[in-house]
């Protein structure tokens, strides 16, 4: 499973790419593999304010539903609307075209480095 070194992670299997005050959020390759074929993504409205750890939506596969949690506190500034018609992008390109939303970050949270996340995956296997 790929765990890009430049990203940060959560124990709920989201990834975060921080650029300035914007954080792009998605789910990891491990998470999409566990879920299987993603068929539906429930996205929040732009403008919604999230606390770190707050559930903001869900990713559904044919068999399972997995809640999505905000890795950092902030305001939702953009959601990936293209997932509405093409939810399979989460399977095909979880760290690229399968991104889920962008936050304007308003604070801090404990995030895992790529190495920590890889160790966490090994421990929970």
């Amino acid at each position: 499973m790929s765990v890009p070194g430049e990203l940060q992670y959560t124990k709920t299997h989201e990834w975060v790419r921080i650029e300035g005050e914007t954080a792009t959020v998605g789910i990891t390759e491990h998470a999409q593999d566990e879920l299987g074929d993603v068929v539906f993504v429930e996205l929040p409205e732009s403008g919604r304010t999230l606390d770190a750890g707050e559930a903001f939506g869900a990713v559904e596969s044919v068999k399972a539903v997995s809640d999505l949690y905000a890795p950092l506190p902030g305001e939702v500034v953009e959601v990936n609307e293209s997932l509405g018609d093409n939810p399979e992008k989460i399977n095909e390109d979880p760290y690229g075209e399968g991104w889920i939303l962008k936050l304007r970050v308003s604070g801090e949270a404990d995030l895992l480095s790529a190495e920590d996340y890889e160790n966490f995956l090994k421990e929970t296997e």
Binding site: G36, D37, S61, V62
Partner: peptide, 8 residues
Amino acid sequence: PVQYEGIK
């Protein structure tokens, strides 16, 4: 086995 290649 719940799936091999994928449910779809």
